[in-house]
Simulated assay, not measured.
Amino acid sequence: MDLTVAADRAALDKARDELGPGRIALVPTMGALHEGHRSLMRLAREHADHVVVSVFVNPLQFGPDEDFSRYPRTFEADLRVCEEEGVRVVFTPSADDMYLPDRQVEVSAGGMGGVVEGAFRPGHFDGVLTVVLKLFNLVRPDVAVFGQKDAQQLALIRRMVADLDVPVSIVGAPTVREPDGLALSSRNRYLSEADRRTALALSRALRAGAARGQTAGPAGILDAARAVLEEAARFDPPLLLDYLILADPATFAPAGDDHRGEAILAVAAKVGTTRLIDNVVLTL
C-alpha cells in the first residue's frame, strides 16, 4: 500500500479516514530515523492493522542551551525508512500547526518529571507529555509504541495515560544497540571516532552493574557501574557524568537498600558536545 504524507491536521484527518477499518498504532518520532525506530515500527505492526509515524522536532522539549537548531533533520531518508517498514501515514506538522501562538495550557509532568533526567533538563518532560497528548488527540491511535531507551519518558507517558484516562495502550520496545554496545540514538552521528570510544563506557558501565545485580544490593550495583565511568572520565575526550542512578521504575526515586523486583540502572553523560543517555532494566 502507498505511503501518505500528511503535512497538517486536515491532511491527517483525510489520510486517517482513508485507512479503513482496523486498529491504528502511532510511533511518535523526531525524525533522523535509524534501526531503533525501525524496530518500533515493526513492533507497531504486530499490535495494529495500520501504522502512523509522526516526524516532528518538538521545540517544547528543548531547553535554551540544547541542540534544537542542529538536531538532525533527514526528511527524505526518513520517508524511505517508513515506506520500507510498511507505514501507511507519516504526519509531519509544523510548529505553527501543532501549537497556537498564544497557547496557555501545557501538560505538567509533576514531581516525577523533575527528577533524574528532569533535574538536568527542567521542563523537558512537560514538553514531551504536551506533544504526546496532542498527537494522541490528533491521530486517535489505539496503541502507541515508545522505546525503553528513554525509560523515564516511557514511564511518564504511561503515568499520563493512566492519570488522565487517555484511551491509548502504551507498548514499550527494547533498546536497540549497535554491535559495539552503544545504544542507537539520532545524536550518535555527532560523535567523532574518539568521542565514540569514550561513549562506549556508558553501555560497559550498565553491563558491569547488571552483572552484580544477582549478588549485590543497590550499592554494589552502583559501585560497579561507577568504577567504569570514573575510568572513562580520564579518557581523551573525557566522559562528563550527569547522573548514575538505580531507580524505582514506578517513580524514578532512588531504589533503596531493601528494594526488590524491577529497577532501572540509568546513566547520562556528555562526550565532547554530545549528551547521551542509556539504561538497563534489572531485577533485584
Rank of each mutant, 00 (worst) to 15 (best):
T251R: 04
E231A: 13
V132R: 06
R234K: 11
K270I: 08
D180C: 05
A232W: 08
E193C: 13
G220D: 04
G272H: 00
E178D: 08
L202F: 05
N188Q: 02
P238I: 00
D257V: 15
V166E: 02
L182S: 08
G220V: 00
A269R: 09
L222T: 00
P141E: 07
L239K: 06
A194I: 11
R189A: 12
P237N: 00
R226I: 10
T215H: 10
F252L: 01
T273S: 14
P237C: 04
S192Y: 09
L241G: 13
A183P: 14
G272C: 00
R159Q: 15
Y190K: 01
S185Q: 07
A144G: 13
K149L: 08
P237E: 01
G272S: 02
D257E: 15
L182G: 06
A144P: 14
A219H: 10
G256T: 13
Q148A: 10
D242F: 10
E262G: 02
L241E: 13
A247R: 05
V168N: 03
R159N: 15
F252D: 03
A266D: 08
A194Y: 12
A173S: 15
S169K: 11
T215P: 10
D165C: 11
A199L: 01
L135M: 11
R196I: 02
A208T: 10
D195V: 02
L182P: 09
E178G: 05
E193D: 15
M160R: 03
D195N: 04
D242T: 07
L200K: 10
A194P: 11
G261N: 13
V145C: 11
D258C: 06
N137Q: 05
R158E: 08
P218W: 11
A194F: 12
A208G: 11
L184R: 12
G213H: 09
L182I: 08
D150H: 08
S203W: 14
T198H: 01
Q153A: 10
F235Y: 09
I170S: 05
L138N: 14
A211I: 14
L239Y: 04
L202G: 08
T215A: 09
F252H: 03
D242W: 06
L138W: 15
Q214V: 15
R187H: 00
G209I: 03
F235G: 12
L229C: 07
A227E: 12
R197W: 09
L191R: 02
E178C: 06
L229E: 07
A199M: 05
S203V: 15
R158F: 01
V132I: 02
D150C: 11
A216L: 14
I157T: 10
P179C: 04
G181L: 00
P174Q: 04
G217S: 13
E193G: 13
V143P: 06
D163F: 12
R140K: 14
P254G: 12
N137W: 05
R226L: 08
F136L: 12
F146H: 04
D165R: 09
L184C: 12
A269N: 14
A263M: 02
V161F: 02
A205Q: 07
L200E: 10
D150A: 11
L191N: 01
V131A: 08
P254K: 11
N188C: 02
M160T: 03
